[in-house]
Computed example of a mutant assay.
Amino acid sequence: MHQAGLVVGESRWVEPGQVGELHFAGNRAAADAAFADWRDRADVLVLDDGAREARLLVSDMDSTMIANECIDELADYAGVKPQVAEITERAMQGELDFEAALRERVALLKGLSEHVIGDCLGHRIQPMPGARRLVRTLRSRGVDCVLVSGGFHSFADVIGAELGFNAVYANRLVIEHGHMTGALEGGIVDAARKAAILQEQAGGQGLESAQIIALGDGANDIPMLKVAGSGIAYHAKPAAIAAADAHIAHGDWTVLLHALGIPRSDWAE
């Protein structure tokens, strides 16, 4: 079949009657246009074949691997959630400088006990559906999985270990005498740093762009989504969707496993 510069070839079921894949020759823009009408009803991911040979996955954490924004949850304990959540939303939309917005929000946490971190992790933080299966399945297939977060190591280290990531990069809260000082320690993991970490990881392994998948949801993820051979936006902000190669808008992270041609029978738990 030929359609607007698109040559469609072999098709097959990944999961019979539920998930299918279609191979085509032509540019990505033509394929995206051909399936545009489907996206109101289902997730359609148009990926290069190279994604199936990926050797590096780099993912954001908040609102990507977990269903929360950790700083907003901490702010709730401090009684300043409305103020912090508004700043978070504007930063993720790309309306504010990320570092300045982060420091402003962290300053509002001054005096908060470090014990709330454990309570928050235990009672509020929820992994995104399918996140654990995605990471552990890809690791079982030889993919290095790296978590890069504009949030905090206090959360990211625990979440990264639970989901199965090889390495974690995040920001560090300064805690003195058991309480947050309202400051951060060391350099900031912002949009540029996320992309730099991706490139450092890829360079250390001698990988090409086509062998890299990046996952994110907000403006802070755009540079790494663009650098990766396959940048995947997840229930994302408009700016991130525009920058990504594909967008998951309806399903959970197992959509990506299907898009990579991995049937349910091969998923890791």
Results as ranks from 00 to 15, higher is better:
Val80Cys: 15
Arg41Asp: 14
Asp72Phe: 05
Arg41Met: 10
Leu45Arg: 01
Val44Phe: 03
Val44Met: 08
Met61Val: 00
Leu47Pro: 14
Asp48Ile: 00
Asp62Trp: 00
Val80Thr: 12
Gly79Gln: 11
Glu69Ile: 03
Ala42Val: 11
Leu56Gln: 12
Ala51Lys: 13
Gly50Arg: 10
Met65Ala: 03
Ala67Lys: 12
Cys70Gly: 08
Ala42Cys: 13
Ile66Tyr: 00
Ala75Tyr: 01
Asp62Ala: 12
Val46Asp: 03
Thr64Lys: 04
Met65Ser: 03
Val80Phe: 01
Asn68Thr: 02
Ile66Asp: 02
Ala54Glu: 10
Leu56Ile: 10
Arg41Thr: 07
Glu73Thr: 03
Glu53Met: 11
Leu45Phe: 06
Ala51Arg: 13
Ser63Ala: 15
Ala51Pro: 11
Ser59Gln: 12
Gly79Pro: 05
Asp49Gly: 08
Asp48Asn: 03
Asp72Ile: 04
Glu53His: 14
Val44Ala: 02
Val80Ser: 10
Asp43Gly: 02
Gly50His: 10
Ile66Pro: 01
Thr64His: 08
Leu56Pro: 07
Gly79Val: 07
Asn68Ile: 02
Ile71His: 06
Asp60Phe: 07
Glu69Leu: 06
Asp48Ala: 09
Arg41Ala: 08
Val46Lys: 05
Val58Lys: 14
Ala75Asn: 07
Leu47Glu: 11
Thr64Asn: 09
Asp72Ala: 14
Asp49Phe: 01
Met65Gln: 06
Ala54Thr: 14
Thr64Phe: 04
Val80Gly: 09
Ser63Asn: 12
Ala78Gly: 04
Glu69Asn: 08
Arg55Leu: 14
Ala75Ile: 05
Asp60Gln: 10
Thr64Gly: 15
Glu69Pro: 06
Gly79Cys: 09
Arg52Phe: 04
Tyr77His: 11
Ile66His: 00
Arg41Trp: 12
Val46Gly: 02
Asp60Val: 11
Met65Pro: 00
Asn68Cys: 05
Arg55Ala: 15
Asp48Tyr: 00
Thr64Leu: 04
Leu47Phe: 00
Asp76Trp: 01
Met61Gly: 00
Leu57Cys: 09
Leu74Cys: 05
Arg52Thr: 14
Glu73Ala: 01
Gly79Asp: 12
Cys70Gln: 08
Tyr77Lys: 05
Ala75Lys: 01
Ser63Gly: 15
Val44Glu: 04
Ile71Asn: 07
Leu56Phe: 13
Lys81Leu: 07
Leu57Met: 13
Gly50Met: 07
Glu69Arg: 01
Tyr77Val: 10
Ile66Ala: 02
Glu69His: 02
Asp48Val: 00
Glu53Asn: 14
Ala67His: 05
Ile66Glu: 01
Cys70Ser: 08
Val58Tyr: 14
Asp72Trp: 04
Ile71Asp: 05
Glu73Ile: 13
Ala51Val: 15
Met65Phe: 04
Gly50Cys: 10
Tyr77Asn: 09
Arg55His: 12
Asp72Thr: 04
Leu45Pro: 01
